[in-house]
Measured scan of single mutants.
Amino acid sequence: NQASVVANQLIPINTALALVMMRSEVVTPVGIPAEDIPRLVSMQVNRAVPLGTTLMPDMVKGYA
């Protein structure tokens, strides 16, 4: 199964993503693939992302 990017902490709106904020986990539904974690670093989220939430492409500015 494909691992997705999951929030490792609460990520406030407009926060630039850092490695420590993300982990990979096999979840349903599938979100952003875990292999894209390096690409996500320094991109901003466009909403608050609670701990344990799967990151979806529409949550990250400039990802989709």
Rank of each mutant, 00 (worst) to 15 (best):
T53P: 01
V27E: 02
R47M: 14
L10A: 13
P33G: 07
P12C: 06
T53V: 10
T53L: 15
M21W: 04
T54I: 09
A3M: 15
A16Y: 14
V6Q: 03
R23A: 05
V30E: 15
S42Y: 14
T28P: 00
P12F: 06
N46T: 14
L17A: 00
N14K: 06
S4N: 01
R39K: 13
N1H: 11
T53F: 13
V45T: 13
V41T: 05
R39N: 08
L51H: 12
A16W: 14
P57Y: 13
S42V: 03
G52A: 12
S4R: 01
S24H: 12
V30F: 14
S24Y: 08
Q44H: 12
Q44N: 11
T28S: 14
K61D: 08
Y63Q: 03
L19S: 10
M56K: 08
A48N: 13
I11W: 02
M22H: 00
L40A: 00
N14Y: 15
P57C: 08
I11R: 01
P50F: 10
Q44I: 14
V30C: 06
V49D: 03
Y63I: 04
G31S: 01
T15F: 07
Q2N: 12
N8P: 01
M43G: 02
L40E: 00
I37G: 05
M21N: 05
L17I: 12
L19H: 10
V5E: 00
Q9T: 14
M59L: 05
G31D: 01
L40D: 00
G31M: 03
V30L: 15
N46Y: 10
N8E: 09
T28A: 10
P57E: 07
G31A: 03
G52Q: 03
T53W: 14
P29V: 06
I37T: 07
D36P: 00
A64G: 09
M43S: 06
P57K: 10
L19Y: 13
N1R: 04
E25D: 12
V30G: 08
I13M: 12
I32M: 03
L55N: 02
A7F: 03
V30R: 06
A64N: 12
L19R: 13
D36V: 08
A34G: 13
V6P: 01
A3S: 09
A7I: 05
A18T: 15
E35M: 11
I37C: 04
N1F: 15
D58W: 15
R47D: 05
L40N: 00
P33S: 12
L10D: 15
I11L: 08
P33N: 12
A7E: 02
V45D: 00
P33A: 11
V45M: 06
E25V: 09
V5F: 02
P29T: 05
M21D: 04
P12G: 08
E25C: 07
I37E: 01
P50V: 09
N14D: 11
R47L: 06
S24N: 06
M56S: 06
E35P: 07
I37F: 03
P33W: 09
D58H: 10
M56P: 01
A48L: 12
V45I: 06
M56E: 07
N14M: 10
V26D: 14
E25R: 08
L51P: 15
V20M: 15
V27P: 00
N46D: 09
Q9G: 05
G52W: 04
T53Y: 14
A16T: 11
G62E: 09
A48H: 13
N8H: 07
G31W: 03
L10I: 09
V20N: 14
E25F: 06
I13T: 12
E25W: 06
V49W: 03
L55K: 01
V6I: 13
M59Y: 10
G31F: 03
P29C: 04
K61A: 11
I11H: 01
Q2V: 14
N1V: 15
Y63H: 04
V49M: 05
N46V: 11
K61E: 09
A18C: 15
T53C: 08
Y63S: 03
Q2P: 15
A64Q: 15
N14E: 08
M56Q: 11
I32S: 02
T15R: 06
P12T: 07
R23W: 04
S24V: 11
V60M: 04
I13N: 15
A3N: 08
R23F: 04
T28Y: 14
A7R: 02
G62W: 09
G31L: 02
V60G: 00
R39G: 06
M22S: 02
V45P: 01
S4M: 02
N1Q: 15
N8R: 12
P38C: 06
V60E: 00
Q9P: 01
